[in-house]
Simulated scan of single mutants.
Amino acid sequence: MARVQFYHNAENPLALACELAARAYASGRRVAVRVPGPAAARELDQLLWSFEPLLFVPHVMADAPLAARTPVVIGDAARTTRWPHAELLFNLADDIPPDFERFRMLVEIVGQSEAMKIPARARWAHYKQRELPLQAFDAVRREAL
């Protein structure tokens, strides 16, 4: 059963995804990052290269030949993605990831706009209805809600 964490109120969801992916990689974990579309995938790719000057976070797009051997994989929610591993899934898209059940943990990253909060509430309700373990955090204050 997947555990679900929500990071609400993120000033910049892509930057938070970079930070969390870097921490996960540093602790030896593998991460799949699901973004809303191809533009966000390209932006996240660039952010991971420049996020912290002395930090290297190996990452590729989900359809890259080396995806199965790369710790951080970026996928576009607009396309069907077959994730090469199932440890952590970061979701920045508005919908429920179709295959989230196969992951040990799902991390929902939600921005500050109402346009991001409304679908996040629906996802929270979906996971709660399925009786999945839920945790909520304020992304700005970095504390549990």
Results as ranks from 00 to 15, higher is better:
residue 59 H to G: 14
residue 52 E to P: 02
residue 45 D to F: 08
residue 59 H to K: 08
residue 34 R to C: 06
residue 29 R to C: 00
residue 56 F to M: 15
residue 85 H to S: 10
residue 43 E to V: 03
residue 70 T to L: 08
residue 43 E to Y: 02
residue 53 P to C: 05
residue 34 R to E: 09
residue 87 E to K: 13
residue 95 D to F: 02
residue 79 R to F: 09
residue 75 G to Y: 14
residue 40 A to M: 11
residue 85 H to L: 12
residue 54 L to H: 10
residue 78 A to E: 14
residue 58 P to C: 10
residue 38 P to R: 02
residue 92 L to Q: 02
residue 32 A to R: 07
residue 55 L to V: 04
residue 68 A to W: 06
residue 50 S to V: 08
residue 70 T to A: 09
residue 91 N to I: 02
residue 35 V to L: 09
residue 49 W to N: 05
residue 47 L to H: 09
residue 63 D to P: 12
residue 79 R to I: 03
residue 58 P to E: 11
residue 31 V to H: 00
residue 44 L to Y: 03
residue 63 D to L: 02
residue 45 D to I: 07
residue 59 H to C: 09
residue 94 D to M: 15
residue 82 R to H: 15
residue 47 L to F: 03
residue 41 A to P: 15
residue 94 D to C: 04
residue 68 A to R: 07
residue 37 G to D: 15
residue 38 P to T: 13
residue 78 A to M: 13
residue 89 L to H: 01
residue 41 A to H: 09
residue 29 R to D: 01
residue 57 V to G: 00
residue 75 G to W: 10
residue 55 L to I: 15
residue 37 G to Y: 12
residue 82 R to T: 15
residue 38 P to E: 07
residue 59 H to A: 08
residue 60 V to I: 09
residue 80 T to E: 14
residue 39 A to R: 08
residue 81 T to D: 07
residue 51 F to W: 13
residue 78 A to Q: 13
residue 58 P to N: 10
residue 94 D to T: 08
residue 29 R to T: 01
residue 32 A to S: 12
residue 68 A to Y: 05
residue 70 T to R: 14
residue 32 A to W: 12
residue 57 V to D: 11
residue 36 P to Q: 00
residue 60 V to T: 02
residue 50 S to F: 04
residue 76 D to L: 05
residue 59 H to T: 02
residue 61 M to D: 15
residue 29 R to Q: 10
residue 65 P to C: 06
residue 39 A to D: 11
residue 54 L to N: 11
residue 42 R to D: 15
residue 37 G to M: 09
residue 60 V to H: 01
residue 31 V to D: 03
residue 89 L to C: 00
